[in-house]
Design a protein around this nucleic acid. Structure first.
Ligand SMILES: [Mn+2]
Ligand SMILES: [Mn+2]
Ligand SMILES: [Zn+2]
Ligand SMILES: [Zn+2]
Lengths: 125, 125
DNA sequence: GTGAAAATAGGAACGAATACTATTCTCATT
DNA sequence: AATGAGAATAGTATTCGTTCCTATTTTCAC
């Protein structure tokens, strides 16, 4: 794996926001620094960063993927009005995981929890 | 809302399987009975049935949506090898929901838990 | 039965994501 | 510092799940 300018830039962008951006948003930010970067490169880099565990890919109700440069174990809540995504501590513990394995016979390797609701701003309207 | 043959057929198909099928699979099944039904109609009906709460739409890692004709409160586990989806009891309780509301300030209206792993068949290889 | 409104069939369009490939860039080796 | 092999990129085409459009058909209250 080579350390290219594009890779550094994409990683820097995704690490310096807490908005859980789309690939397109990362692309637009990257173009401000490197106008000739291509969208395909952004997608490929985000995919590879995910494989390396440096980035997490979310599917937050909408059709577009969103990316998280803070890959620590946490979950997300999506505002059903404005789409804002906030971090949420994980409420699933080891006991719950064991129970799921017992009930289903699957060997569990990961889980994802998505919460939906109204963010504080959107509750005022 | 009118009671059309197409609506009855799609509802019947999605209720009589536990495979959490894609829209395309529902379409193929429907064509066996009604060869001229259109894919757009299947999508529209699945969308409306979801609005009515008779069908649940899942986003299971892949790019295709999958549909569930058993809308009771339960969650899902997806096999990372073959894509099979099984039902899982919900491990999130009221206390966890309260905690998330306290921490985030969001008003929670729903949640979704997706588990990932290997199904019993795929563990043998 | 009649008519108005709703729903459908068939096809076009959309858009997020991926594939393709000629060219550029990186970096281990010298 | 120069070389060169192959990894990565830019630009573009393509894929494919889903949605949109509209002339025609179907439903159902009267
Ligand atoms: Mn996050
Ligand atoms: Mn189910
Ligand atoms: Zn909001
Ligand atoms: Zn499997």
């Amino acid at each position: 794996m080579r350390n290219t300018k594009q890779r550094q830039l994409v990683l820097d962008i995704v690490r310096n926001t807490d908005t859980h951006p789309t690939a397109d948003w990362v692309y637009e930010q990257a173009r401000k620094v490197m106008p000739n970067i291509s969208l395909g490169t952004v997608y490929r880099l985000l995919g590879r960063l995910q494989e390396e565990g440096l980035v997490v890919q979310l599917e937050a109700g909408s059709r577009k993927s969103r990316f998280d440069g803070q890959p620590g174990p946490h979950q997300h809540i999506v505002c059903e009005r404005c789409g804002r995504i906030a971090d949420v501590p994980d409420v699933v513990d080891q006991a719950a995981t064991e129970r799921v394995q017992q009930v289903t016979g699957y060997r569990v390797s990961a889980h994802r929890v998505e919460w939906f609701g109204l963010c504080p701003e959107c509750q005022d309207t």
